[in-house]
Amino acid sequence: MAKPMIENNERGITINKALAWTMLVSVTGLIWWGGGTLASLQSAADRLTSALTETREMIVTERASSAQLEARVRVLENSATRQDVRFDALSLSINELKQQARETNTLLRELAQRP
Rank of each mutant, 00 (worst) to 15 (best):
L38W: 07
L38I: 06
A39T: 13
A39I: 08
A39S: 03
S40E: 15
S40K: 13
S40Y: 14
L41C: 06
L41Q: 10
L41M: 14
Q42L: 14
Q42Y: 09
Q42P: 00
Q42F: 12
Q42A: 13
S43K: 09
A44E: 08
D46M: 07
D46V: 08
R47K: 05
R47F: 03
L48S: 00
T49D: 07
T49W: 01
S50M: 10
S50K: 08
S50H: 13
A51K: 13
A51P: 01
A51E: 14
A51H: 08
L52V: 15
L52Q: 12
L52N: 10
L52P: 11
T53K: 07
T53E: 07
E54Q: 02
E54P: 00
R56Y: 14
R56T: 15
M58V: 10
M58F: 11
M58R: 14
M58W: 12
I59A: 02
I59K: 00
I59N: 00
I59D: 02
T61H: 10
T61E: 03
T61Y: 07
T61W: 01
E62K: 10
E62Y: 06
E62Q: 07
R63G: 06
A64H: 10
A64C: 12
A64M: 13
S65T: 14
S65V: 13
S66H: 09
S66D: 11
A67M: 03
A67W: 04
A67V: 05
A67T: 07
Q68M: 06
Q68V: 02
Q68S: 07
L69W: 11
E70D: 10
E70W: 14
R72W: 15
V73E: 05
V73Q: 03
R74E: 04
R74V: 00
R74S: 06
V75P: 04
V75Q: 15
L76N: 01
L76D: 02
L76V: 00
L76R: 00
L76M: 02
E77C: 01
N78V: 04
S79C: 02
S79H: 10
A80M: 05
A80N: 05
A80R: 05
T81P: 00
T81D: 02
T81Y: 11
T81I: 08
R82F: 15
D84L: 01
D84T: 01
D84I: 01
D84H: 03
R86I: 10
R86C: 02
R86G: 00
R86Q: 03
